[in-house]
């Protein structure tokens, strides 16, 4: 049965549940009949939940993507992209880090100093909404009128690695086998990198009712996914971004190694995914198959995660 049919079935059973509940509310009916109707309605609701779960189509298949060949731009597009990049000031051959940020660009100042000191050219792509990116070796193309999707993609694929806060860019980098550092992720299942060359950091999640900041382990519990509107997000702080950038540089240059804490966290996410297979969000991001990815939570956060 196709997922679409499961969705329709879920809708049918849900409506059937509501109809039976509605009928059960009729006080003129005998008590036993109403009780029976309520039980049937509950069964219909359970069935709806099962169908809904079956109707979830994962956005991707982590195992397939982990072994996929890298995508490349067609030669013509690549050439055009290179030409555009050169016109915008990108020096061919110079090691480059693509940066995309959606919330407060000023947090990257420490990371920019570090990357610049390591000899990287920092090229800012994506939306300029987070404000200008300043620092040594920075080429801010976000508000450059010549910026096109092709240029963004070329720069992304040509970079030594990418620092981004959007899931889309992280996934594009993954498809092109460009190492990525995803910052400000809101949960581990969305952001966990599939490939070994991926690192991510989590936002600080705040319970808006109490003001309490959730621990990272709380983000692996089912309760977190019940009502995400009840949470606010503080972006990853500058110090952690800088540490994560340092880890990226080490990984790109000396190979990727996991700390004990990172291995433990990966196992915890995979186990939590299997346990929460019925949670729509987890299923959507293919977090329930037991394989979450070979990437890692940034060391600086993993040390305090579990």
């Amino acid at each position: 049965m196709s997922p679409r049919l499961h969705v329709l079935a879920a809708s049918f059973w849900r409506e059937w549940h509501r109809e039976l509940r509605r009928q059960a509310g009729d006080e003129r009916l005998p008590y036993q009949v109403r009780t029976h109707l309520r039980r049937s309605a509950d069964r219909a609701l359970r069935r709806s939940a099962v169908e809904e779960q079956r109707g979830v189509v994962p956005r991707w298949n982590r195992r397939t993507i982990a072994g996929a060949a890298p995508i490349r731009l067609p030669p013509d597009d690549e050439q055009r992209g290179r030409r555009l990049a050169a016109e915008c000031g990108v020096v061919p051959g110079q090691p480059m880090v693509a940066v995309e940020i959606q919330r407060r660009a000023d947090r990257l100042s420490g990371a920019i100093d570090l990357l610049s000191a390591e000899g990287f050219r920092i090229v800012r792509i994506g939306d300029p909404v987070a404000g200008p990116l300043r620092g040594p070796g920075v080429l801010d193309l976000a508000s450059n009128p010549r910026r096109t999707p092709l240029l963004d993609t070329y720069l992304l694929l040509a970079s030594a690695f990418v620092v981004c806060s959007s899931a889309e860019l992280q996934q594009t980098a993954l498809m092109g086998h460009t190492p990525s550092l995803r910052i400000d992720a809101r949960d581990a299942f969305t952001a966990y990198p599939v490939r070994r060359d991926g690192v991510f950091t989590l936002s600080t999640v705040v319970d808006l009712d109490t003001g309490r900041a959730l621990a990272i382990r709380d983000l692996l519990a089912e309760g977190y996914f019940h009502n995400t509107r009840n949470y606010g997000y503080r972006p990853t702080n500058a110090a952690e971004i800088t540490e994560a950038a340092r880890e990226m540089v080490e990984g790109v240059r000396a190979g990727w190694r996991d700390s004990e804490a990172q291995i433990r966290f990966r196992r915890a996410v995979a186990d939590a995914g299997v346990a929460m297979g019925h949670v729509r969000h987890v299923a959507e991001w293919d977090g329930a198959s037991g394989f979450i990815g070979d990437g890692r939570l940034a060391r600086v956060q993993a040390d305090r995660a579990l």
């Binding site: 849900r14 549940h17 509501r18 509940r21 509605r22 009928q23 059960a24 509310g25 009729d26 006080e27 309605a41 609701l45």
Partner: peptide, 9 residues
């Protein structure tokens, strides 16, 4: 989105 029954008839 509600799962409640609505008003009795």
């Amino acid at each position: 989105e509600a799962t409640r029954s609505g008003a009795p008839a």
